[in-house]
Computed example of a mutant assay.
Amino acid sequence: MVMIDNNENDNTAMQSIYLNVLYAKKNSSSNKISSRIHFHPFTEFYFIIDGNGKFSIEDKMIDVKKDDFLIINSNVGHSIYSSKDDENLIYVSFGVDSIFVKSVDNNENLEEDKYYYNSIDEMKDYFLNSFNDINNEFNSKDPYSKSMANAKASEFVITLLRNLSDEFKITNDIKINKQIDYIKNFIDNNYSEDIRLENLSKMAYMNKFHLISEFKQNYRVTPIEYLILKRIEVTKNLLISTNHSMEEISSIVGFNSQSYFNQVFKKKVGITPSQFRKNHRI
């Protein structure tokens, strides 16, 4: 559990913070295997050790390289893969619960508070050492290793807040409504079906306007926008890993029209499905 005490008279003053690390690992992602879109009920910190790659964060595509640093807020859909056929994207990451990273310049619009990205220069050794220490402690069998990982993560985040206080701050995380979580899981498992907002609202026992508001508060997109993002991410994997035609893929992921499928994919990814396949196939 994270403990945060705020001074109500000074919104930038963080009196205390202690993080609970839920996982820590060193990993790699190649162009051969693009991770599917996934959501976590916790906030993730990433540091790129080597390689070049891409983070697909909902409707944005971010090019990343060695010494880049990212924070992805909880319940924000993302996937990771390398940019080149012969190269792995190597990174260290860890997840902590109950915090939300918020831009200092953005007081109202949660839509923009999905992630934080920066390219580290002067502090890159500190970043690498901190991520490795957190990872090593969390996965160690030494006594009190989990507590040490929590302490090191807390120290790291406090150092960030001190050095980057003009860029972001940390608040308590948004809690997920169980009904909304059920709707999200239903879409995950049935994205290829003809899912309509009216049917989802009946399943959640909410009117559709309330459902849209609650879903967007929890996942920062509407249910239908999330459905499209899910289909796009599955499409990416099919384009990379199969020889299915565009017509077959559009049908598999649930689009009734290939032209609409092409239009939506280009709008969200920035290139057509054919271009994406050409760029990422081996």
Score class of each variant (00 low, 15 high):
residue 142 D to G: 11
residue 148 M to V: 06
residue 113 D to L: 03
residue 99 I to H: 07
residue 61 M to D: 09
residue 16 S to A: 10
residue 46 Y to H: 12
residue 108 E to Y: 13
residue 216 K to E: 14
residue 204 A to V: 00
residue 13 A to R: 00
residue 117 Y to E: 01
residue 197 L to E: 06
residue 212 I to K: 03
residue 136 N to C: 13
residue 162 R to A: 14
residue 30 S to E: 08
residue 204 A to C: 07
residue 42 F to Y: 14
residue 79 S to K: 00
residue 77 G to A: 07
residue 144 Y to I: 02
residue 101 V to H: 08
residue 202 K to N: 13
residue 112 E to V: 05
residue 260 Y to R: 07
residue 3 M to C: 05
residue 277 R to S: 14
residue 140 S to G: 12
residue 244 H to K: 03
residue 25 K to H: 15
residue 37 I to S: 10
residue 33 I to S: 11
residue 273 P to R: 00
residue 268 K to Q: 11
residue 55 F to C: 02
residue 274 S to H: 07
residue 98 S to K: 05
residue 56 S to D: 08
residue 130 S to Y: 11
residue 125 D to C: 10
residue 53 G to W: 02
residue 221 V to A: 11
residue 279 N to K: 04
residue 73 N to Y: 06
residue 137 E to G: 01
residue 108 E to P: 00
residue 95 G to V: 05
residue 224 I to P: 08
residue 51 G to I: 04
residue 51 G to D: 05
residue 95 G to Y: 13
residue 130 S to M: 10
residue 61 M to T: 05
residue 239 L to Q: 01
residue 274 S to C: 06
residue 62 I to A: 08
residue 107 N to M: 12
residue 40 H to V: 01
residue 122 E to A: 14
residue 273 P to M: 00
residue 134 I to S: 08
residue 224 I to K: 05
residue 31 N to R: 10
residue 79 S to G: 12
residue 200 L to K: 00
residue 262 N to G: 15
residue 170 I to G: 07
residue 25 K to R: 13
residue 125 D to Q: 08
residue 70 L to I: 02
residue 96 V to S: 04
residue 186 F to R: 00
residue 173 D to V: 01
residue 140 S to M: 06
residue 111 E to S: 12
residue 201 S to G: 08
residue 1 M to P: 06
residue 171 T to C: 13
residue 212 I to Q: 05
residue 112 E to F: 15
residue 257 S to A: 10
residue 72 I to Y: 06
residue 244 H to Q: 02
residue 130 S to N: 09
residue 204 A to W: 07
residue 80 I to V: 15
residue 32 K to P: 04
residue 1 M to C: 09
residue 154 S to M: 07
residue 128 L to K: 10
residue 42 F to A: 12
residue 168 F to G: 11
residue 280 H to W: 10
residue 281 R to A: 11
residue 142 D to S: 13
residue 29 S to F: 15
residue 259 S to Q: 11
residue 75 N to Y: 14
residue 208 K to V: 04
residue 25 K to Y: 15
residue 234 V to P: 00
residue 236 K to W: 10
residue 270 G to A: 12
residue 207 N to C: 09
residue 162 R to I: 13
residue 217 Q to D: 12
residue 251 S to A: 12
residue 44 E to R: 01
